[in-house]
Protein backbone atom coordinates (compact mmCIF):
# COMPACT_ATOMS: atom_id res chain seq x y z
CA UNK A 1 0.00 0.00 0.00
CA UNK A 2 2.92 2.28 0.83
CA UNK A 3 4.22 1.94 -2.72
CA UNK A 4 0.87 2.89 -4.22
CA UNK A 5 0.39 5.68 -1.66
CA UNK A 6 3.38 7.68 -2.98
CA UNK A 7 2.29 7.57 -6.65
CA UNK A 8 -0.92 8.27 -8.53
CA UNK A 9 -1.00 4.87 -10.23
CA UNK A 10 1.42 2.12 -11.23
CA UNK A 11 1.30 -1.18 -13.04
CA UNK A 12 1.97 -4.66 -11.72
CA UNK A 13 5.52 -4.79 -13.08
CA UNK A 14 6.52 -1.50 -11.47
CA UNK A 15 5.13 -2.60 -8.10
CA UNK A 16 6.97 -5.90 -8.39
CA UNK A 17 10.28 -4.08 -8.96
CA UNK A 18 9.65 -1.69 -6.09
CA UNK A 19 8.55 -4.28 -3.55
CA UNK A 20 10.84 -7.13 -4.65
CA UNK A 21 7.93 -9.57 -4.21
CA UNK A 22 7.27 -12.60 -6.41
CA UNK A 23 4.40 -12.22 -8.92
CA UNK A 24 2.23 -14.74 -7.07
CA UNK A 25 2.80 -13.12 -3.69
CA UNK A 26 2.15 -9.60 -4.96
CA UNK A 27 -0.90 -10.76 -6.88
CA UNK A 28 -2.38 -12.33 -3.75
CA UNK A 29 -1.74 -9.14 -1.71
CA UNK A 30 -3.34 -7.01 -4.42
CA UNK A 31 -6.37 -9.26 -4.65
CA UNK A 32 -6.97 -8.89 -0.91
CA UNK A 33 -6.59 -5.11 -1.14
CA UNK A 34 -8.93 -5.02 -4.13
CA UNK A 35 -11.53 -7.10 -2.27
CA UNK A 36 -11.31 -4.67 0.65
CA UNK A 37 -11.97 -1.78 -1.74
CA UNK A 38 -8.53 -0.26 -1.11
CA UNK A 39 -7.09 -0.77 -4.58
CA UNK A 40 -8.70 -0.07 -7.93
CA UNK A 41 -7.58 -2.20 -10.89
CA UNK A 42 -8.03 -0.82 -14.40
CA UNK A 43 -7.30 -2.97 -17.42
CA UNK A 44 -6.54 -1.14 -20.65
CA UNK A 45 -4.51 -1.45 -23.84
CA UNK A 46 -1.33 0.63 -24.25
CA UNK A 47 0.37 0.26 -27.64
CA UNK A 48 -1.83 -2.77 -28.34
CA UNK A 49 -0.55 -4.62 -25.26
CA UNK A 50 -2.72 -5.37 -22.22
CA UNK A 51 -1.86 -3.09 -19.35
CA UNK A 52 -3.09 -3.25 -15.77
CA UNK A 53 -3.02 0.00 -13.84
CA UNK A 54 -3.38 -0.10 -10.06
CA UNK A 55 -4.23 2.82 -7.82
CA UNK A 56 -5.33 3.37 -4.27
CA UNK A 57 -8.98 4.26 -3.92
CA UNK A 58 -10.08 7.13 -1.68
CA UNK A 59 -11.04 4.51 0.92
CA UNK A 60 -7.57 2.94 0.58
CA UNK A 61 -5.80 6.28 1.05
CA UNK A 62 -7.89 7.09 4.10
CA UNK A 63 -7.22 3.64 5.54
CA UNK A 64 -3.49 4.06 5.03
CA UNK A 65 -3.55 7.52 6.65
CA UNK A 66 -5.42 6.09 9.59
CA UNK A 67 -2.88 3.26 9.84
CA UNK A 68 -0.04 5.80 9.87
CA UNK A 69 -1.75 7.82 12.60
CA UNK A 70 -2.24 4.68 14.70
CA UNK A 71 1.37 3.54 14.30
CA UNK A 72 2.58 7.06 15.18
CA UNK A 73 0.43 7.11 18.32
CA UNK A 74 1.70 3.66 19.28
CA UNK A 75 5.35 4.68 18.84
CA UNK A 76 4.83 7.86 20.86
CA UNK A 77 3.48 5.80 23.75
CA UNK A 78 6.60 3.62 23.87
CA UNK A 79 9.07 4.41 26.70
CA UNK A 80 12.39 6.05 25.73
Amino acid sequence: MMHLYVVESADFQFLQHQTGMTPGNLSSHLRKLEDAGYVEVTKEFVDRTPHTALKLTRKGREAFKEYRRNVKRLIEKLPE
Binding site: V7, E8, A10, D11, Q13, F14, Q16, D47, A53
Partner: peptide, 16 residues
Protein backbone atom coordinates in the same frame (compact mmCIF):
# COMPACT_ATOMS: atom_id res chain seq x y z
CA UNK B 1 11.04 6.10 -22.66
CA UNK B 2 8.12 3.99 -23.90
CA UNK B 3 10.33 1.45 -25.70
CA UNK B 4 13.28 1.19 -23.28
CA UNK B 5 12.20 2.21 -19.78
CA UNK B 6 8.57 1.13 -19.53
CA UNK B 7 8.99 -2.49 -20.71
CA UNK B 8 11.76 -2.95 -18.14
CA UNK B 9 10.43 -1.38 -14.97
CA UNK B 10 6.77 -0.96 -15.75
CA UNK B 11 4.59 2.11 -15.88
CA UNK B 12 4.05 4.61 -13.12
CA UNK B 13 2.20 7.90 -12.94
CA UNK B 14 3.50 10.25 -10.30
CA UNK B 15 1.16 12.63 -8.49
CA UNK B 16 0.76 16.28 -9.40
Amino acid sequence: KRKITMPRIGFVKFGT
